[in-house]
Amino acid sequence: MAAADHTAARDVSASANPLLRFASSARSALTLILRTTTGRVGFTIVMVHLTLAVIGPWITPYTPTDFHLDDRFSAPTAAYWLGTDEFGRDVLSRVLAGARSIIWIATVGTVLGVTLGTIVGVTSGYAGGKIDQIIMRIVDWLLAIPSLLLAILVINMATQRFSGVDDSWIIIGIIGISFMPNNSRVIRSATLAVKPLEFVESARLRGEPTPYIMFREILPNVLPVVAVEAAIRISFALLLTAGLGFLGLGVQEPTPDWGLMVAENAKHLSTVPLSALAPGFAMASLVVGINLLADGIRQAQNIPETGDSR
């Protein structure tokens, strides 16, 4: 299979290297996205966040978990640009550090969910019949529990039962599992739109193996939908992760968490409003950026708004 795929990729490529080919098609897709206003603004915001998350550890003025007990509840000063919280921790350093974990969790969780959803959706849609019915019934059942409720119960169970587990992996797992059903539905309906097309029948008439048809012939045609899905889902994942943090069920202290920072510092709004507003603004701007980018992809690829929700 792998060997066959390799030659197939060579067969169809204008340039010899499939990676180069992919890069060039990704570049032309990006050009299209950047032609839309929302795409441009969203891309800029997301790039700023990513850059800060990457270079964060080198530019933070303080260690985010250090207490400066002499400087508790400090207003913004030259030393603490965004002030400090009730333990005198530097808010700027904590906001910068918080970006890393939340972006990591949301991205990996989404990749997991969208990958699972795409495999399930393409399989279910292409197979049809009984297999499709069974898969879709399971998906319906998974959808019967709101994802935040599921997350709360699982995290509660996991944190009580297993101490010392890195709960970012639990959150990643929950994001993956709770995104899979909705995602697989969307991908399934995109697959159903492609499946009756003649080039798929053509491939069947050539006697191509089923996995080849699903992933070589059909998948490229549903990839734009997958891209939009992934972009929207990342924003849902960010909201879920931050929401759990806000409820005190997110990644454990001392890792800085935007949601938890808002929750803790909301008590001190009258003294140091920035301590709650800064992580809140960071969170909001990132989600706004991603949603704008998703809208740009949608416009560029001409995909209608489906109204998926969290």
Partner: peptide
């Protein structure tokens, strides 16, 4: 619809 819109012309003929 009888040609895969995401693959070049070469694909349909060479595969066969």
């Amino acid at each position: 619809a009888s040609l895969n819109p995401k693959l070049p012309i070469r694909h349909a003929i060479v595969r066969a």
